[in-house]
């Protein structure tokens, strides 16, 4: 007995341990996401959880309902006015039955012979217990669910199909973002962007550069897959507005991808300012100049 409890304890401890790194990573994730932790994902998650919960609640309710019915039968019987002595005895016996065996509608072990079939296969016998009522109820419930589900999507059009669902999702997000930006007061874009020179902004730009740009333009901006960014020659204009636009929209035919979806306007502004601040830094192994000369 003692040994078993040790086994259980060590199992629980091991389980607990297994969750530790997850907590750590969750913290990390929360840390990087910052305040902007709301979004569709959580709505989805909540919806999902709600459905699981609803399912579980449904099952539990059915089980409970049945229990109540059975319990009422069992409890009320002895109070019947015409209960004879023998009836009382059987009622008492019935009371002894566990709720579980009532739930399964199983014939108790001691009366098993009543439901024993004459089947025998290599020594295996078969009982013929009733189908557990909650199981039957669950089966019916899923069938009803299925009919309603198919009707809702494909006959009555209560629920959107996936293309419509997508349009709704995008529209809702668009309104939300517009509202947010309106409240914040205008967004930065290539028509109004200004060059930043403060240390903090340039440092942020440098950070963005090394995570996203260095692979192609070189760690020191010297060029590689993409052009050198430290000389005075520019393929798509060297003004901060031009650089902003190039980063934002990309030059797909030349392999420069659009960063609009990945970087916020503020980030692009910082990045463009950082790149321009590096003009004339003359790194080693610089790629040959490309494009037009731009005089600042």
């Amino acid at each position: 007995m003692k040994k078993r409890s040790i086994q259980y304890k060590s199992m629980m401890a091991a389980l607990g341990l297994s969750t530790l790194p997850m907590l750590a990573s969750a913290q990390q994730a929360a840390g990087t996401s910052g305040a902007a932790a709301t979004g569709i994902s959580q709505t989805d998650l909540l919806l999902g959880l709600a459905v699981v919960l609803a399912g579980l609640i449904l099952i539990c309710t059915l089980v409970l309902l049945y229990t109540v019915v059975v319990m009422r039968k069992v409890m009320l019987k002895p109070e019947g006015a015409e209960a004879t002595a023998t009836e009382a005895a059987t009622a008492q016996q019935a009371q002894k039955l566990s709720v579980w065996s009532k739930l399964t509608d199983a014939v108790p072990l001691e009366r098993e012979d009543e439901v024993m079939t004459d089947h025998e296969y290599d020594g295996i016998r078969e009982l013929d217990n009733n189908l557990p009522p909650w199981w039957k109820a669950m089966f019916y419930a899923t069938i009803v669910f299925s009919v309603v589900y198919l009707a809702a999507y494909h006959v009555l059009d209560w629920a959107p199909l996936q293309d419509q669902e997508y349009e709704q999702e995008v529209l809702a997000a668009q309104l939300e973002v517009e509202a947010y930006l309106a409240e914040k007061g205008g967004a930065i874009d290539e028509t109004n962007v200004e060059l930043l020179t403060d240390e903090a902004a340039l440092a942020e730009g440098a950070k963005t550069y090394s995570s996203y740009c260095g692979a192609c333009h070189g760690a020191e901006l010297q060029g590689g897959v993409g052009p050198n960014l430290t000389d005075v020659y520019w393929l798509h204009g060297g003004d901060v507005k031009d650089v902003f636009k190039t980063i934002k929209k990309g030059v797909p035919q030349k392999g420069m991808i659009s960063w609009e979806a990945q970087l916020s306007p503020e980030q692009i502004q910082q990045l463009a300012s950082f790149i321009i601040s590096k003009e004339g830094s003359n790194p080693a192994n610089a790629k040959e100049p490309q494009g037009e000369e731009f005089k600042r």
Binding site: M22, A29, S33, A36, A37, I40, Q42, Q174
Partner: peptide, 21 residues
């Protein structure tokens, strides 16, 4: 699985992916 999915789907208030990379 849950972490992946939440990170894939998360947006900033500006309407950008929170984890674009």
């Amino acid at each position: 699985g849950l972490t992946q999915s939440l990170m894939w789907k998360e947006f900033t208030k500006e309407g950008l992916l929170a984890y674009p990379n």
